[in-house]
Amino acid sequence: CVPEIDFSGIVCDLRGTKVKDFNTGDRVFGIGPIGFRNVGHGVLREYILAKHDHMTKVPDNISLKDAACFPATGYTAYCFLVEKAKLKKGDRVFINGGSGAVGVMAIQLARTIVGSTGLVVATCSPAKTDIIRNLGADEEHYSSRPFDVILDTVGNDHALYSNSPAYLTPAGLFCTIGMVEIGSTVWSATKRLLQLLSAMIVPVYLGGVPRRHIFEPLNIVHSRFVAMAQLVEEGAFKAVIDSTYKFTDALDAYDRVMSRKVTGKVVIEVNDLE
């Protein structure tokens, strides 16, 4: 099975297709088959067949290396903060897991949207506080007014949601992205999935938490992906690269991911096509 879904590259053949919005030689970035474990082919290879509505052109001011960091994580941050939570200027946002791949995107995007009158609070390990503060986070520890939006990019502790009435406004939205940690068992992953489903469907009069909760798998909508790319071009968020590996050193890249010390993205250079 060829893994991974986030890619950048160059369009090299349009023969046999009805695609009109790309030309040979275009720099593109996008998301490959999300269920690659089922179909057997992800994007960590030299050539792929990509769905035209799962990708778009790379903005001229972004390198192909940086572009590879955005597809799934930038799109996820965009969908939850902009499309679902409808974040606006002055809002207060809490991001659990601020130094992860989605977290670094979410902090930057949230900072751009809420502006100087809003608040972006994030958690991270002590060694990474300077990094996420430079991305736009205001505080690492919260102790004042409730938040309008909570984005949980870690997702391993249901108590963060079940206790949320203490720190999330009644009209606020709790978004869960992370669900399965490295090393999870089938049982722990199933239990977590059931918790997330119950959080969305159990009404308050049956003991549900009186705060709105959403959790949904990655679902690519081309117009949203293009909107995310527009924000990348405008500088709303930038790539945060933890480390870069050659294609032949891919296993070392996975060792780095498994170390749990990653800040942002681990990138593999398959062919430097710049």
Partner: peptide, 27 residues
């Protein structure tokens, strides 16, 4: 393992030569 270059495209697909890939630990 040698992975062959795709030679045919569906109507909604394009052939892309990969430059960079970023890893997703949670997927």
């Amino acid at each position: 393992v040698e992975v062959p270059i795709p030679t045919t495209c569906a109507d909604d697909e394009v052939l892309v030569q990969i430059s960079h890939v970023s890893l997703n630990s949670a997927i």
